[in-house]
Design a protein around this nucleic acid. Structure first.
Lengths: 225, 225
DNA sequence: AGGAAGATGTATCAATTGTTACAAAACAAT
DNA sequence: ATTGTTTTGTAACAATTGATACATCTTCCT
């Protein structure tokens, strides 16, 4: 039996009631597969032909490098789906090998059945589209940041973008650590740059509020980066 | 009137007959808007509330940097859609300002109507999912490459990828300068790394041929980068 | 063969960033 | 208020890379 209550907590079924999920699942074909601890669920490179959702237990995604060493990438726990970003597209192969951390039950349905779900429920469709779109947008933003060579450039760009044209101050929503990750730098290096820019009179920092004192100079930082 | 024949060449309607497109369009609401040369179609930062498809003419996407300089990003010609990657997701705002290159007709429909299309036609749904998934996968790959912090890491990754699993030597097709540009580093820095790796016995360089002497060690460089 | 142009190897120094460590500050919970 | 936790500021030093310059090696042209 499936715990539909649990499934409603899965990102794909967000905003759908337990009963609706149950109704939808009556209309499509799916299977429940069981795996025991350390059993391999899928191998990296295999084409993604099914949508897999972890119903109980947890699995880990691992990459095998060229020398055969195994590197753990992430844990996926119930009720999360696997590799949703690879169900479609040109390179729809599992990027990682997935192994069971413990006794695991996985709901699996062919992509064709998932397509039916998407057409039956506009909520599921919206959830899925939002999910992969957000992912693409996140990646795109991240790429853009990496194109600035210096940390100063990245910071200047970020602040100007957040502030927009009208405003002269930005309320930081993320911790320095999160920003540092976004920029691909270390946290102390980021803090140092913030400090330097403050000393030079480009910005002024008060708690989580950053005031842009010299937008022109900040621009020039971008153009030189 | 709409040229449905033209629309079938739009990526979103690929694989659908003219008649099918016409039938589908009878079931949804949309508008045709006209713009004259150099008229602004949408401003960067505006939320993407509609799917826009260029029916005739061409538009250009431009970014305005903070100092007011305009940088052209790309041209979009009929029958291509605008900003399809930004219809959904958390940051669904136009990344560029779109301006008409000449007299332009644009088909525009609310996202809610586009959702209807996706649910009416599994072909359109597949087309769209493939399109944004491929984009995300492409970005992900690119990001993976840029995510190596050290030049050594990038070089190691590049060489191992070029060589594949079987081979132990790579014929460089690009000059060091081109490789340096690809990696986003300076040419002497790249040459230095090549030199160091050769001294350490990781690789051996003969003209344009690079022999990988120690694949294991090269892997470790990647993992630490 | 000779010479010019381009590509590569190498050196030196400056600039930037990472690493590590620790203190101060802000925050949350009791 | 007080404690414990998270976040932020800062410092010293190491490692990496950029900038610049120049010698050497290739390639290609005549």
């Amino acid at each position: 039996m499936i715990n539909y209550q649990l499934l409603t907590q899965c990102p794909i079924f967000m905003g759908i009631t337990e009963n609706e999920v149950e109704d939808l699942f009556k209309k499509i074909h799916f299977q429940i597969k069981s795996f025991s601890k350390d059993e391999i669920v899928v191998v990296a490179g295999e084409p993604v032909l099914n949508l897999n959702i972890v119903l109980s237990g947890s699995v880990r995604g691992e990459m095998i490098d060229y020398s055969g060493k195994i590197i753990k990438i992430e844990d996926i726990e119930a009720p999360k789906p696997l590799a949703t970003a690879f169900l479609f597209g040109k390179e729809n192969k599992f990027p990682v090998t997935v192994t069971a951390n413990n006794d695991v039950k996985i709901l699996t349905m062919p992509v064709s059945e998932f397509l039916k779900l998407l057409q039956l429920s506009s909520q599921i469709l919206k959830n899925y589209l939002n999910s992969i779109s957000s992912r693409a947008q996140f990646l795109s933003q991240k790429l853009h940041f990496l194109s600035f060579k210096t940390i100063r450039g990245k910071v200047a760009h970020y602040l100007l973008q957040q502030a927009g044209e009208k405003f002269h101050s930005v309320e930081l929503k993320n911790t320095q650590q999160q920003l540092a990750d976004l920029f691909g730098v270390t946290r102390p290096s980021l803090a140092r740059v913030f400090g330097e820019m403050q000393k030079e009179g480009l910005i002024s920092i008060n708690n989580k509020t950053v005031t842009l004192l010299d937008k022109k100079a900040l621009n020039e930082l971008i153009n030189n980066a």
